[in-house]
Amino acid sequence: MSDNTTNLTLFEQLGGEAAVNAAVDIFYRKVLSDYRINRFFDNVDMEQQAAKQKAFLTMAFGGPNNYSGQDMRNGHAKLVKMGLDDSHFDAVMENLVATLAELNVPQELIAQVDALAQTTRNDVLGK
């Protein structure tokens, strides 16, 4: 029975959309409270932003999404102009890892989420 997990995607192992819903409140609160990065999130409607956070988490969890690398570039280009760099990316990842730890996600799955998100770094930072 436990062997089933080997066939599950990372997204499914994390718990799918329920995991995204559980994580989004905690994660977004951390991001908005983090002085290193919260200026990037000023002046956006909170509900819309929360929807985007869900899109972010779904993607970070390896869930279904239609974003290409180019979309990630375009989506964050405005932020790169505002000075978005590696330190901000690291800060977001720190908040994401802390969120998952708070939700008692096993370390090995957190490592997988981290590795997956790192693959988008260059696109997000427009490198």
Partner: peptide, 9 residues
């Protein structure tokens, strides 16, 4: 519709 996974609403 969007994600078809109950995420994007």
């Amino acid at each position: 519709y969007g994600c078809k996974q109950g995420v994007c609403f």
